[in-house]
Amino acid sequence: MRHRVWLAVLVVVLALAGAVGFLARQGLDRADRWASVAAFLLALTVAGGTVAASMARRRPTVASGVARGGRSIRCWRGGTAPSSRAARETPTRSST
């Protein structure tokens, strides 16, 4: 996992260094135009990521600990909830 993080940091640093080198060779006027295009593309990327993250956050999943019935899987002994069929067929104890 740490290798992926360092690889991502390395890719970002190399991309920024390449962009700075490219813009330095373009001249001030053309570099300004390229920077505007890059900022627009970055804004679109961030907006898309924000929409995707907000949609993923609203959707409850079994992996996040919420079962179909709205109960947390952690509520059940053993870590897994019994199926509804097994729960119906299991006899209940009467307290006398």
Rank of each mutant, 00 (worst) to 15 (best):
L14E: 01
V62D: 03
A39V: 14
F22G: 00
A56I: 00
G18T: 12
L42E: 11
R68C: 02
G49T: 06
D29F: 05
A52R: 09
T45V: 05
S94K: 08
R71T: 00
A63R: 05
L23A: 01
D29R: 13
G79K: 07
R59C: 02
P82D: 10
G18E: 03
T45F: 06
A87T: 10
H3D: 08
L23P: 01
S95V: 15
L16P: 05
P60Q: 05
T92M: 14
G70S: 03
R58E: 11
V51R: 13
L44S: 06
D29M: 05
H3M: 06
V62S: 06
M1T: 07
L7G: 07
R88Q: 03
A15F: 14
V66D: 01
S36K: 11
I73D: 00
A24E: 04
F40E: 10
A8C: 05
G48F: 04
S64T: 03
L10V: 12
T45W: 10
V13P: 01
S54D: 02
W34N: 07
M1W: 14
S84L: 12
G49R: 07
G69Y: 01
A63F: 08
R57F: 05
A39I: 10
W76N: 06
A31K: 00
R85D: 08
D32V: 04
L23R: 04
G48R: 04
G48P: 02
V12L: 15
L44I: 06
T50Q: 05
C75E: 15
T45Y: 14
V62R: 04
I73S: 02
G48D: 00
S36D: 06
G49Q: 08
L10Y: 14
A56N: 02
A47F: 13
A15V: 14
L10Q: 08
T90L: 10
L44V: 08
P60S: 10
G65R: 02
R71H: 01
S84T: 09
R74Y: 11
A53R: 08
H3S: 13
V9M: 15
S72W: 03
R93K: 15
R59M: 03
A87F: 09
S36Q: 13
L14P: 01
R25Q: 15
A47Q: 06
W34C: 02
T61V: 04
R68D: 02
R25M: 14
A15N: 08
R77C: 12
L41V: 07
R68F: 03
R30N: 11
A63N: 00
V20L: 01
T90A: 12
R74N: 11
V37R: 14
V13R: 15
